[in-house]
Design a protein around this nucleic acid. Structure first.
Length: 606
RNA sequence: GGGGUCGUAGUUCAGUUGGUUAGAAUGCCGGCCUGUCACGCCGGAGGUCGCGAGUUCGAGUCUCGUCGGCCCCGCCA
């Protein structure tokens, strides 16, 4: 194929087919760079030797699909060092035009710099770009390596349904109407969770599947409504066994795609430590800027003369600080910009203090009121030195963590603290089993209601649910959650206590999970599992910025496909066939953007 | 649900305190050219300034609304 030809092929008669990348018509000679999946090769049509072929070639345009027959020959002194095929060219004596092409809306090249919605509207053209082709070929290899690793480790690949019973709670489901059962609906599976547990009960003690999952939640750079998981479940194992299986697979993935050696074993950190030091349950360990919790220290100083500190503590808040080193001192303006950034994620403001040579604080709202004792203590606790800037955040724990972890990532990027080519992998363990929901004033499952508490916390299920830790774990890579799982409950007594803590009544249990509970009563082995995000893994390994870079046909942030126009309204009759009536307000005419492809097509057809 | 940011030839962008016929590069079309590879040279076409109101003698520019893209918070058991 085009990109495979080398000097060793000189003299060979070849036939190549592909797309015209560029043409250079010099009059008596036409040069065409022909592209296929493997790369580019230069084809020459010489008027003096092939009058007929030359006559066709000089009318060829970009992205036309052609086939060429000719001889590989040396370029002599005209080598193009930029191309792998640059030492040779094809001296063509025959050309066939398979298809002409409209002028594409953007250039098919890795250098393209066009808007993402245009790329998605013409995704089939975007996918012609070599870099995306490389990414998808790499992703194909990831699938092979994952499968091989798991099969070698004794796993069986089994399928589970996409169309499943709707269960409330957790991620919102996409819903599928049942024509055969008027008024009833399936849900698209948000994960194979329950079914893989049923495989364990059935005795398939090591299951895996590379499968799509569907969640009707708001999109992000790293979240698509349909995405691919490598899903695992194992019987007769503990947490460490599961970690080892995953580590083996992930190490293979990195080794065999980008030749990166990940540590053995992966480091582990508890959820509490991650929140304390980084304000996040998926900390990016490639750089410092760790947080320091000052809550107790400030308590000891009874607020240290700072009214805002005292107020935050009185309301049950926490106080956190982060030191920005003086090697790259922050100007007043830069800190003001950081405050805007902080307010953007919900902060009321951003406390700051610049450390003077004598350790006093300048450029700080606290400098006039703070007592020397607390100031010295904070300098010491944070390790702040002259020229450094301390940033403060205080208030409700969740907000403080969100703001501070956002600032940490923002500064890490802005100050260039994130080393290129670094890979920092981490297990985060001991997540809380429950979270308290202020609205319903109940505990809700932090992971899912079948997650086992740590064995030593079982006694606290009734006495102090909020303090229970789960046998749940996430795998974090460079600040991205790439896998998450847990040991499941297989003891009916423990399961009952968990449902009690969640205030889920017996009737509710039956209605929501009856079939799983019944299955668990027929002899369930101890089991647990994990699911890895294939798209995120592929994104990280490919060095992409967005999940859209590694998914052939992704959705926009509003869940739309600019190419097909999906989602669209459907006919009244179709709704009627499904026993559904829409209460949506009438759709606005000619929405812009999504219909662009259609409009273009109409224009060109007329 | 909320915050930020962007929207001008096919594409990437410029467009002054609101002021003549909205520019550049590239791409596209036509012509010339036998060693180009960002080919070159000559000529040409190409615009609902996202959409809709408003202010104004006059709006790409100001105001309000709306649609869409992207990033984030909430949400994602």
């Amino acid at each position: 194929m085009c990109g495979d030809l080398r000097a060793a092929d000189i003299g060979q008669s070849v036939v190549v087919m592909g797309w015209v990348q560029t043409y250079r018509d010099l009059g008596g000679a036409v040069f065409i760079d022909l592209r296929d999946r493997t790369g580019l090769v230069q084809v020459v049509f010489d008027e003096s030797s092939t009058k007929e072929a030359h006559g066709i070639a000089d009318r060829v345009r970009g992205e036309w699909v052609i086939g060429v027959a000719g001889k590989v020959r040396s370029r002599g002194s005209n080598v193009n060092p930029k191309l792998p095929t640059g030492e040779i060219e094809i001296e063509a004596d025959y050309i066939e035009v398979f298809n002409r092409a409209e002028t594409p809306p953007f250039e098919i090249s890795d250098d393209v710099d066009t808007s993402e919605d245009k790329r998605l509207a013409y995704r089939y053209l975007d996918l012609r770009r070599p870099s995306i082709q490389r990414t998808l070929l790499m992703r194909s290899r990831l699938n092979q390596v994952a499968r091989r690793s798991l099969v070698e480790q004794g796993f069986t690949e089994l399928e589970t349904p996409f169309m499943v019973k709707y269960t409330p709670g957790g991620a919102r489901n996409f819903v599928v109407p049942s024509r055969l059962n008027p008024g009833s609906f399936y849900a698209l599976a948000e994960s194979p969770q329950i079914y893989k547990q049923l495989f364990m009960i059935a005795g398939f003690d090591r299951y895996f599947q590379i499968t799509k999952c569907f969640r009707d939640e708001d999109l992000r750079q790293d979240r698509q409504p349909e995405f691919t998981q490598i899903d695992l479940e194992l019987s007769f194992v503990d947490m460490r066994d599961i970690h080892q299986v995953v580590e083996r697979m992930v190490r293979s993935l990195f080794k065999e795609t980008i030749d990166v050696t990940l540590p053995d074993p992966f480091p582990v950190m508890t959820y509490d430590e991650a929140m304390r030091r980084y304000g996040s349950d998926k900390p990016d360990l490639r750089f410092g800027l760790e947080h320091v919790v000052l809550t107790d220290l400030v308590k000891q100083h009874d607020g240290g003369g700072v009214p805002l500190f005292k107020q935050a503590l009185a309301q049950g808040g926490i106080i956190k600080a982060m030191v920005v080193p003086g090697e790259q001192p922050l100007s007043r303006t830069e800190v003001d910009k950081l405050e805007v950034e902080a307010k953007g994620v919900g902060a009321a403001g951003l406390g700051r203090a610049k450390i003077a040579e004598d350790g006093t604080w300048t450029q700080s709202p606290f400098s006039k009121v703070i007592e020397d004792g607390l100031r010295v203590a904070i300098n010491e606790a944070t390790g702040a030195r002259p020229q450094d800037t301390i940033l403060f955040q205080f208030g409700p724990p969740k907000l403080v963590h969100t703001v501070m972890s956002h600032l940490r990532l923002h500064l890490g990027r802005k100050l260039g603290l994130i080393p290129e080519g670094a890979w920092k992998v981490l297990w985060v363990t001991d997540f809380p089993l429950f979270e308290y929901d202020e609205k319903s004033r109940t505990y809700v499952a932090a992971h899912h209601p079948f997650t086992s508490p740590r064995h030593e916390d079982v006694d606290r299920l009734t006495s102090d649910p909020g303090a229970c830790r789960a046998l749940a774990y996430d795998l974090v890579l460079n600040g991205n959650e790439i896998a998450g799982g847990s040991i499941r409950i297989h003891d009916p007594d423990v399961q009952a206590k968990v449902f009690d803590a969640l205030s889920i009544s017996a009737e509710e249990q039956q209605a929501k999970f009856g079939f799983l509970l019944e299955a668990l009563s027929f002899g369930a082995p101890p089991h647990g599992g994990i699911a890895a995000g294939m798209d995120r893994l592929a994104m990280l390994i490919a060095g992409g910025q967005s999940l859209r870079d590694v998914i052939p046909f992704p959705k926009t942030q509003k869940g739309a496909d600019p190419m097909s126009g999906a989602p669209t309204p459907i006919q009244e009759q179709q709704l009627a066939d499904l026993f559904i009536r829409s209460i949506a307000p009438p759709s606005k005419e000619s929405k812009d953007g999504t219909k662009e492809a259609t409009k273009e097509a109409t224009k060109e057809a007329t």
